[in-house]
Design a protein around this nucleic acid. Structure first.
Lengths: 150, 150
DNA sequence: TATTTTTGCATCGTGAACGATATAATTTGA
DNA sequence: TCAAATTATATCGTTCACGATGCAAAAATA
């Protein structure tokens, strides 16, 4: 049985994206484990540190995720004492998510993570420029594909 | 409260990788749904079409995954009638995974998926060269980070 | 050879992703 | 104004990822 050339794993861009993502998220573990949060939870923290008190839908929009992913994530984070969720005043459907004291203080502990991670990647895979060079392509890819989530 | 510049979502390479991956996998849905398989299952099929009859560990190695991810995946695929798993003869610990007739026939239906996907992405996000240009960088990134799974 | 270590596979538990669906509040528009 | 459509959130079920752990077979080593 012969594989079609185009079906070979080695010719798949998506498989590379998928693998690179998994491994890169794995590289965050040494820094996120001490904080007790996962990578998706870290992303939510980034969003809230940048802009506190947001309805669930805005957080979801920033992360290009649906609420059925974000809601349980926030529920776990609330249970951990990182955020609280209050009823919206103007729009009663909305749940406004805000950082607790603990959630705000975590920013200080997290502020070196990006540079640590860059350093780790450079050390293991060399050359920073190249990775940064991917950014415009990834952005274009995301922009083109993100329609469903508006 | 001010966010540190480096903690802004917009400065995160990994978030882009993560999002681009999710959206790209999503772009496979129109083609994988008719086959009744998921994207990770499609990856397993790619591996087996390229080389039938492999122990679980080899499949896992190809995909840079651990057996605790691959085993349940294969169990589901066996239940769907795509593969069968037999005891290894030389090494009794191994489970040899092979394609069923149904699994082999699926290759014919799948052979146009890569070009369809490329066409979709080009149509939505323009310019093929750029995405292909990411391949060497992703490979280097993967190579540098993949140590744990050997 | 006997013991230790490693390897291959499996199971369990947790946390995402995401399709499908539900519910209530808001908005639209006939 | 009142029904219909939309929006914001939540719940449920399934499938991945993956850490932790267990077990038996094989390999390494004393």
């Amino acid at each position: 049985m012969m594989a079609y050339e185009q079906l070979k794993l080695d010719n798949q861009l998506c498989f590379r994206l998928y693998t690179a993502t998994r491994l890169t998220i794995g590289a965050y573990h040494p820094y996120l484990n001490p904080l007790g949060i996962t990578y998706p939870q870290y992303l939510v923290m980034l969003v809230l540190w940048e802009q506190n008190k947001q309805p669930v839908c805005d957080i979801a929009k920033s992360l290009l995720l649906d609420t059925n992913t974000v809601t349980p994530l926030l529920q776990r984070m609330e249970k951990m004492g990182l955020v609280k969720r209050t009823q919206g005043k103007e729009d009663a459907r909305q749940r406004i998510v805000s950082l607790t004291k603990k959630g705000m203080e975590m920013q200080e502990q997290a502020k070196h993570i990006p540079e640590c991670l860059t350093a780790d990647i450079i050390k293991k895979a060399n050359e920073e420029e190249e990775y940064m060079g991917m950014i415009p392509m990834l952005d274009k890819l995301i922009e083109g594909l993100k329609q469903p989530n508006k």
